[in-house]
Nucleic acid binder design. Structure first.
Lengths: 119, 119
DNA sequence: AGGTTGATTTGACATACGTCAAAGAGCTGG
DNA sequence: CCAGCTCTTTGACGTATGTCAAATCAACCT
């Protein structure tokens, strides 16, 4: 083996750009980033985000989303829960319906992680 | 068997990012986006990207990456293959070693998808 | 050639994930 | 209060995924 790199655990100061070329990510930091990405990395959840964003009011209830993606309501509810726990959407009850809305800041924060050459 | 994914821009020829609020994503477009996100949505692969970016030369061989993430070489090779097929890294053989390097444009193209309010 | 080192593939395993039907929980209106 | 609509949870199922050991491939050495 050519040479040994320092173990990733020995890094790092966790400054502005998470994936920037001057810092090796720690394992917990990598896990935190991966978990947020994983919440997005599903075709149904991407479509749900798109549907929420394209709604005139910015929010949509489960009963409207389920037929739009052609999946059962339990399945859609499951995906919305994933998005909710990742902070990507917020929910709000209005009578018998539950309306979901995208948290745009969370999307931007993920985009920033991928912005490699910012500083 | 190893085939590379189409660039997101090819799948969705829109002037604005595919998640922008004025367009509902088609199921195939959502799948294309999700597949690239899924390639990133793993803590080990995030760490590998970080390691590659933090290397002075910009490239690193498998035998250095495996001990750095404390996983077996086959496992690391498997992850590098995923990244390769998603177009996120490129490989180059130098003697007995194979060096991997990040494709920064691919990271940026994913970041652009998440840039919701640009137009 | 044969041997050594690095990289990948194969096969197997456990776990995680997406999906649905059925059952439960919340709210509203008769 | 009960009936009905909406949403979520539970339980179950098949598939996909991450991991390693063993085998295989590739390039470099004597």
């Amino acid at each position: 083996m050519p040479k040994s790199l320092p173990l990733i655990e020995d890094a790092s100061p966790l400054c502005c750009p998470p994936l920037a070329p001057n810092a090796r990510l720690s394992a917990p930091d990598a896990l935190a980033i991966a978990q947020r990405l994983k919440a997005l990395a599903d075709p149904t959840r991407i479509r749900l985000i798109s549907l929420l964003l394209s709604s005139p009011t910015g929010e949509t209830c489960t009963c409207e989303l389920a037929p739009a993606v052609q999946l059962s309501e339990p399945t859609v509810s499951h995906h919305l829960r994933q998005l909710l726990e990742a902070g990507l959407v917020a929910k709000q009850r209005q009578g018998t319906n539950v309306y979901y809305r995208v948290n745009p800041e969370s999307l931007k924060s993920i985009a920033r992680v991928l912005d490699v050459d910012c500083c």
